[in-house]
Amino acid sequence: MPFANSNKGVAATAATSLPASTNRYLGWSERWLPKLSLFPTLLVSGTAIYVFIVWTGVLSFTGSRMLPRYNFVGFDSYRAMFATERFGVAATNIVIYASLYIAISLALGLLLAILLDQKVRGEGLLRMIFLFPMSLSLIVTGVVWRWIFNPGLGLEKFAYDMGFVDFKLDWIINPSLAIYTLVIAAIWQSSGFVMVLMLAGLRGVDGSIIRAAQIDGASMPYIYWKIVLPLLAPVIFSATVILGHLAIKNFDLVVAMTNGGPGYATDMPATFMYAYSFERSQIAVGAASSIIMLGVATLLLVPYLYIQIRRGR
């Protein structure tokens, strides 16, 4: 055991030569201290994440109702879950929400970054203004946008009071359009963040490439499309992964803005899980929906992990 030997060595040599022992001691601490100090964090996150994933998985195969019970019933709760229409609504909603949210946030963030990259005056201030929504809690964002969209309080009433009596903005109370109000609020929250990521990426693009292309007579849109965008691919990829996981775990925004309503038209898998696990005493069904969410998230993350691991080699 090198561990035991080096300790003995330290004790033996300490009396004779101080510098040598210090070196050896440093060598030991350099090797073990980082691991030792990371250990508590690893232990906590290991249990808090992986143990509970396994436990949730186990619960999803039981007949648990209000409290966990370990009477295994196979896939019953999965069957019950897929039979509820509400889960279908939640699944459709997350697809609409995630795809629009990711696509528009990326496009808007990229556009803002390109515009801001044109050496505009007051860039620092503008950057801060655009990034600012990200610093708000989603609850605050949700409440503010709920008021903006509320026909009796927000934009519709404002337009009405201005004299535009025919102006209608009642998306939030319309079951088939309410989901898009969530998309808008979420885009408002994160496109500034995407902009900052993209801006950093743009700054990393070598200016001489662009100048060379200009000399060759390429137009600016063409240069951005054919040269800059491909160079930004890693940034776009990271941004997609970040936005993707934000979309899947979306819970607070829904709770603050629509609370799943009207009816349950804006229910999401996360709110579905909460309602079944904690309000309706159907922990098993809630657990089953968590496992499905985990499965989908994993499928989305696998390409990312694959690339990361290959790059690591």
Binding site: S176, G261, P262, E279, R280
Partner: peptide, 19 residues
């Protein structure tokens, strides 16, 4: 009725009322 039954009935009613 128990919460599971109640929840499913609420879903049916609120969905009918709002949509």
């Amino acid at each position: 009725v128990p919460p599971a039954v109640e929840g499913a009935m609420f879903d049916a009613l609120t969905n009918y009322f709002n949509n």
